[in-house]
Design a protein around this nucleic acid. Sequence first.
DNA 1: ACCCAGGGTCATA
DNA 2: TATGACCATGGG
Length: 228
Amino acid sequence: MSAAMSAALELRRVFDRLGDAYDYSAWHWQPETSRDYVCISAVLVQHTNWSNVEQALARLDEAGALSIDAIHGMPPAKLARLVRPAGTPDTKAQRLLALAQLASDHGGLDELLSQPAEELRERLLETRGIGPETADAILLYAADRPTFLVDAYARRISSRLGIGPAGDRYDVWQLWFQDALRADAAAYQRFHGLFVLHGKQTCRPRPRCGGCCLLSVCAEGQRVAGAA
DNA sequence: ACCCAGGGTCATA
DNA sequence: TATGACCATGGG
């Protein structure tokens, strides 16, 4: 059996178990989630706990600024005040403004997102503060394009299972996942959501093993007795 | 009082 | 190419 094939089988098993263990409906980026919400929260969640993002989103909502249009052209200091709970407020305000400007340049968010996937990804990556992961979050959840969203959990969980490529290059990991798992946007959304739901739980950089994770290895990286 | 978070950019070697 | 500093708030 080829390495790619066994990786695919292993990953399918992992997602089956995660799907049994976690309630995917609790995941916050659902198909019906608005595009504005996805785009804004994708920026806010950079290196940030989701609970902080929620606080920032609530403040934006109160201010009537939970949309790309409303953010466009807003004074940076004002926007920074609103997103402060998400951390690095000045940086994130700038990034949101850059994204809103990009949308405006293309006739609005819907028009921007309706471009072919490759062009859209290029435009996003040219935008200051939007790197590969944020771009793919927007592609996958706001534009509904099939792209594997690689995050710290996807890498960490896979590495601890003993699969996945060496190193941490985004494009390498993405190709590896996509080669192993050919799927549509809905499936890639689910893969990502399940990785995060699980990863938040127990997959710290330096694992402290309190109860074991639901995969075949515990958070310390040791095999769990009796696990499949 | 730590450690951590679903990144990205920039400076250095 | 690869590594480290920096951003900065809130939760465990």
